[in-house]
Amino acid sequence: SAVVMEEGSPGEVPVLVEPPGLEDVEAALGMDRRTDAYSRSSSVSSQEEKSLHAEELVGRGIPIERVVSSEGGRPSVDLSFQPSQPLSKSSSSPELQTLQDILGDPGDKADVGRLSPEVKARSQSGTLDGESAAWSASGEDSRGQPEGPLPSSSPRSPSGLRPRGYTISDSAPSRRGKRVERDALKSRATASNAEKVPGINPSFVFLQLYHSPFFGDESNKPILLPNESQSFERSVQLLDQIPSYDTHKIAVLYVGEGQSNSELAILSNEHGSYRYTEFLTGLGRLIELKDCQPDKVYLGGLDVCGEDGQFTYCWHDDIMQAVFHIATLMPTKDVDKHRCDKKRHLGNDFVSIVYNDSGEDFKLGTIKGQFNFVHVIVTPLDYECNLVSLQCRKDMEGLVDTSVAKIVSDRNLPFVARQMALHANMASQVHHSRSNPTDIYPSKWIARLRHIKRLRQRICEEAAYSNPSLPLVHPPSHSKAPAQTPAEPTPGYEVGQRKRLISSVEDFTEFV
């Protein structure tokens, strides 16, 4: 048969007729292969192709491409040299491709048809291009793949890379869960390890502090508590009631339409708007009261037996805890006409967050109470924005700035309102402590230090009264110190430094 060459192609190359033996071998191979691939376009007849790359030819070592076609129900084999250009295909004639002069020997084609199974398996396991790669995943090629499931790999992101949580363990979102698992493993320790309690022994800490320079003076030496005195035992138990972190309780009120001037209507609300609910979820963490331990979680007086509701929101960081007394989460009882059960919590909070959804101005004093010092007013606006402002009593104007209003988005509203309420509550605590000038409020841990110092002074006084020969370590507060001759004046800087060093040991009130 003659071949018409394309323009620009090399000279004529004689194409030899395939021997009958080659056709029989390739026909047997075509019957084993699956003929249901995917359909081509209507211009080209339905056909199945599979590209198999052999590394070497037997005796020649030339890479070839073998295409199996099922045109007219008769499979045909096409061998081509890759750099050459194939002729145009037609549905009426068999596929013809040019070969190099080196394939002119018909014996070479017979060798190609009689490829060993080793070469076929190696060509099938190679990388296939384009559409033949999808075909190689079918059941027909499963014989050339190794048996057994593939090893499982770690989760992959859409980009093909490992997620960040699997790369950096410290930033993994499941870090707290692993800590819980470690605690569970520790709890399952053997009885021999049960006595080993991690941490620092208080006796060891005391020993280090006792021999430090801070205890060089007799006034700073630790003293032993009497065991037989019940009054001192009660004082030590009272110390446990003062937490070592700051605590805040903040009221949250929802004002519906037409309720801006009605205290009873505001306290009777059992739910609010959708934006109000989203605002609550951002204030803190939802907790169930019956599962809380009052000595570990500050509840601000809420009952854990269901008297004040089942849930509330709280927030904490390293040095403070805040609980929100939310009116809509507290039960509304029919027998309580004046809502006294709610007001006994909300009316005693220094700061209230008022979500004013009424469309009218909310005035300070609508919720009557002796300790309502500051109101954080949240007014929802259009386009997911809110107006946040402050209202306070006249005696609080020096501590709280009420002249600045803020426009905040719904997303950042819980954070801004919480921070403003916490700052206002700190100012309210300082303002409330002014009624007792001898006990200015600095912080909870300073209050613990003052309680310890008062307890020490009482013990020293009782020891001096029981044994008059012992001198008083600290003179009583009601006694007057003996007159001392004025010492020589020293520079102001040295006096300030000495006073600062003494105050650092005794108390921190002056620095606050």
Rank of each mutant, 00 (worst) to 15 (best):
R411E: 12
G398Q: 11
K363C: 11
F324N: 02
R448T: 09
E510P: 15
L225F: 11
L225D: 13
Q419K: 01
F373W: 15
D439K: 09
L283T: 00
N436L: 06
A464W: 09
A487L: 13
E360F: 04
T312Q: 10
P475S: 14
T366Y: 03
I440S: 11
F311D: 05
L225P: 10
N220L: 06
T247Y: 12
S469R: 08
K499Q: 12
K337E: 15
N261D: 08
F362Q: 01
L387A: 06
E488P: 10
S466A: 09
H478K: 11
S403Y: 04
K363E: 11
V505Y: 12
I223K: 06
F371N: 15
H316A: 15
D382Q: 08
Q370N: 13
T328V: 01
F362Y: 13
R344H: 08
E257L: 09
S443M: 15
K363S: 14
S409E: 03
N372P: 14
M426I: 10
L224A: 13
S469A: 12
L470S: 15
G258A: 05
G496E: 11
T379M: 05
H375D: 15
Q237I: 05
L449T: 14
E257D: 07
I446T: 07
T490F: 12
Q391E: 07
Q310T: 11
V304I: 07
D357L: 00
G365P: 06
D291A: 13
E278Q: 10
T281W: 08
P437K: 06
G301L: 05
L387K: 05
Q419I: 09
P380S: 01
P471G: 13
S244V: 12
D357V: 01
I287D: 12
G347I: 15
S433Q: 10
R275K: 02
I250Y: 01
P222L: 05
S219R: 09
G365L: 03
N227V: 12
L289N: 15
N269T: 03
L225T: 14
P489Y: 08
Q259M: 02
Q237N: 10
P468Y: 11
T312F: 05
A447D: 13
Y276P: 01
A447G: 14
A481F: 08
D410C: 00
N356K: 00
P331D: 05
E461Y: 10
D395Q: 14
G282M: 03
P491H: 11
I250A: 01
A327H: 04
H316E: 15
V304N: 12
K221G: 14
N261R: 12
G398P: 14
L381D: 03
L329A: 05
S469V: 11
V388Y: 00
F350I: 02
M420F: 03
L329I: 04
V473P: 13
G282V: 01
S409N: 04
I353S: 00
P442E: 11
P331K: 08
F311R: 05
S477A: 12
D303E: 08
F373C: 15
T247H: 09
P380K: 00
N348S: 15
F324R: 01
L264T: 15
P222R: 06
D349E: 07
T247C: 14
S403F: 04
F362W: 13
R434Q: 13
L267N: 03
F362V: 05
T485W: 12
S409D: 05
M320I: 13
I407Y: 08
K406T: 12
I242Y: 07
T438D: 14
R458N: 15
N436H: 09
E270T: 10
D217F: 15
H432C: 07
P243F: 04
Q259H: 03
D341W: 09
V297P: 15
Y274L: 08
P486H: 12
A251N: 03
Y274D: 04
E462Y: 06
D336F: 13
E218W: 09
N386T: 04
E488C: 09
G496H: 08
H325C: 04
L387H: 06
A327Y: 08
Q457P: 12
I440E: 07
D318L: 05
S244N: 14
Y245E: 10
G492D: 12
N436T: 10
L346R: 04
Y441P: 11
S260W: 04
V354M: 02
V335Q: 11
G369L: 08
L346Y: 04
V304H: 07
D317E: 13
K337W: 10
W445F: 05
R454S: 15
M396Q: 03
P294C: 10
R434M: 11
Q259P: 02
R500W: 07
I446N: 13
S504P: 15
D410L: 00
V430I: 14
T485V: 12
S389Y: 08
A327F: 07
G282N: 05
S389P: 01
A424I: 02
P486S: 12
C385P: 02
P222F: 06
K249C: 14
F324H: 02
L422P: 00
Y383R: 04
H478Q: 14
I250W: 00
S231Q: 13
S352K: 05
P226S: 12
E510F: 06
P294H: 05
Q391W: 05
I353D: 00
G359T: 04
N425M: 03
I502M: 14
E494W: 06
D382L: 04
A417C: 09
R454C: 13
E494R: 09
T490W: 09
V404F: 11
K342E: 05
Y313T: 05
P222Y: 06
